[in-house]
């Protein structure tokens, strides 16, 4: 049995390729999370503004993203955009774009919830001191909102990591594709190869996501008791 495990996971280039696939998965999630945070904060501030038109627009966008499966969005942008526009979009670009579109929506909603939870007198005091709206947002509101934001952001990160396998559907060679290729090759000689490879991928995801979820829960408890 050990032989079979060894062959499936470590023979030839197998392990290096699996790790490369994992690297791609993590790289896409990392880029998307960073972009979502960068774009989601201003979007969230706009969402909590008084402007009815802006609020309505973001609300609609958020609802649409929430209702549409990410996979459908990936499909839509990958296959339609690349066919009907002059630019040929790489699957990597489309993946990061779609994950960011989703992340911005979620992030903006988190920011909105966190910002509206800050008492109004904080903003009013800032105005009384003659700070500009920008200064109030970045010096007074956001630093206080971050504590409330953090668990949600970390949660979003694990959700992104768990959603990245979808890029397999738009022809990217991620962890899954590599796994599938290995199973196709060594599965002929060894029937158990699929058990080891898919089992390994299963454990890999758990090992990555579980500590992150624990951390998010720890922060949530810390915030609640504070």
């Amino acid at each position: 049995m050990l032989d079979s495990v060894h062959n499936a996971l470590f023979a030839g280039e197998n392990f290096r390729r699996l790790m490369e696939g994992l690297g791609l998965t993590l790289w896409i999630s990392f880029l998307s999370v960073v972009l979502s945070i960068a774009l989601g904060i201003p979007a969230g501030l706009l969402m909590s503004s008084k402007n009815k038109f802006l609020r309505g627009f973001f609300r609609l966008y958020l609802e649409f993203i929430r209702v549409m499966p990410i996979l459908v969005l990936l499909f839509f942008f990958y296959y339609t955009l690349s066919r009907y526009s002059a630019i040929n979009l790489s699957p990597f670009f489309v993946s990061v774009m779609v994950f960011t579109m989703w992340g911005v929506a979620e992030m903006a909603d988190l920011v909105r919830a966190a910002v509206t939870s800050i008492p109004a007198h904080q903003r009013e005091s800032g105005r009384a001191l003659g700070l500009s709206e920008l200064q109030i947002n970045f010096l007074i509101i956001l630093p206080q909102a971050i504590r409330r934001l953090l668990p949600g952001v970390i949660n979003l990160t694990t959700r992104m990591i768990k959603t990245t396998p979808f890029v397999f559907f738009i022809n990217m060679v991620d962890l899954f594709k590599v796994g599938q290729q290995i199973v196709e090759v060594s599965g002929m000689r060894d029937r158990m190869a699929s058990v080891w490879v898919y089992g390994f991928i299963f454990i890999l995801f758990f090992v990555i996501c579980y500590p992150i979820s624990l951390f998010s829960r720890y922060l949530e408890n810390k915030y609640q008791s504070a």
């Binding site: 899954f176 299963f202 995801f205």
Partner: peptide, 11 residues
């Protein structure tokens, strides 16, 4: 909760 559905289905 910490593994994707697609991994579970593959398995």
């Amino acid at each position: 909760r910490n593994t994707p559905l697609i991994v579970q289905l593959f398995f």
